[in-house]
Simulated assay, not measured.
Amino acid sequence: MSVEAVKAGFRVPHGFLGRRGGVSTGEMAGLNVGPGSGDDSEALGENQRRAVAAVLPGATLLLVHQTHSADVVTVTEPWELEARPQGDAMVTSERGLLLGILTADCAPVLFADEEAGVIGAAHAGWRGAFGGITDTTIAAMEQLGARRDHIAAAVGPCIARTSYEVDETFRTRFLDQSRDNEAFFTDGSVGKPHFDLEAYVAARLAAAGIRRVETLSLDTYADPGRFFSYRRATHRGESAYGRQVSLIGLP
């Protein structure tokens, strides 16, 4: 099976990859690209090679040590995987580098100012999204010459509202930030709130002045044949879970 790369409306090479087309086995079967997953190192290496070949052959894949922060790394040169910096987003204007974001329910966000030749990639779980990871990514792109009104963004596969049950403390945190955030919550069948991460991230992007925002509306939790999901693995009592990768690079 070939690697599946879902595309957004960018002309620059990119793709939101799922679990199809990889060599990992067991609970992480498929295209697991996460070095922190505990997967076999040879399988990880082969999956990473396949991911690069599917999006920008010959490019250097860059990952960061994601911590659910609002920290952005400006990339000027590649690094070894073992020496990857901490952060939850990367931006660059350098060619031949493939920015990779790992997710398993959190929202991957890809950015491009095609006119300026500046790209970005961000990991937006609820903590990072709430803390402003998309805002800091946009600001870092502007430091490289991007224009906010020229940046396009796409929100990739993530856990959907129907699958994302939270508690009242979670909802209160968002309502304390803004009463407008009530729009991202509905009550589930057992009375607990459900959160729409994708819509919240898209709204943060629009509020930041991003005019082109695309959402893919693909639920990682509900589609085990296509995506890894931390929450699904937890609910099933599985001991491990894989991570899919979202990629963007300048040729």
Rank of each mutant, 00 (worst) to 15 (best):
E142Y: 01
T76Y: 11
E42S: 13
G38D: 07
P108A: 10
D105T: 07
L99Y: 08
P85V: 07
L144H: 03
A70I: 00
E142G: 00
E42C: 00
F111P: 13
G145F: 08
H150R: 15
E142D: 02
V64N: 13
Q48F: 00
D71H: 14
I138S: 08
S37E: 09
I133C: 05
E77V: 01
I133F: 03
A54T: 05
V75G: 03
E46H: 01
G96H: 10
T103I: 08
T74V: 15
G45M: 08
C106N: 13
A112P: 11
L98P: 04
A59Q: 10
G58H: 11
A83C: 01
E82F: 04
A139G: 02
I133P: 03
L102C: 06
A140Q: 07
L99D: 07
I151K: 05
P78Q: 09
M90H: 10
G96S: 11
E42P: 00
V91T: 10
R127K: 14
L102H: 06
N47G: 04
D40F: 01
L99S: 06
G96N: 10
A51E: 06
Q143R: 15
R50G: 02
A124G: 05
R50F: 02
Q86D: 11
R84K: 14
F130A: 12
A51H: 04
H65S: 15
E42N: 11
R95C: 12
T136K: 09
F111M: 11
A59S: 14
E114L: 10
P108S: 07
M90I: 10
L63S: 01
L81Y: 01
A139E: 15
D39N: 14
R127P: 00
A54N: 06
A54F: 05
S69H: 06
D149R: 11
G117Q: 09
E82T: 14
A129E: 10
L61H: 07
G96F: 11
A112E: 06
V73D: 02
E94G: 07
D71C: 01
C106F: 00
E82V: 15
I138C: 04
L44Q: 09
A140T: 09
I138T: 03
W79P: 04
A139S: 13
T76D: 15
L62H: 08
P57I: 02
A121Y: 01
H150D: 13
D105K: 04
H65G: 09
E115K: 14
E77S: 15
V91I: 05
F111R: 10
C106S: 15
H123A: 12
D39V: 13
D39Y: 00
P57E: 07
A122Q: 05
S93C: 13
P57Y: 02
R49V: 02
Q86L: 11
P108E: 05
S37M: 04
G128P: 03
A70V: 00
M141W: 02
I138D: 06
L56H: 08
V64D: 10
E115H: 12
A83Q: 14
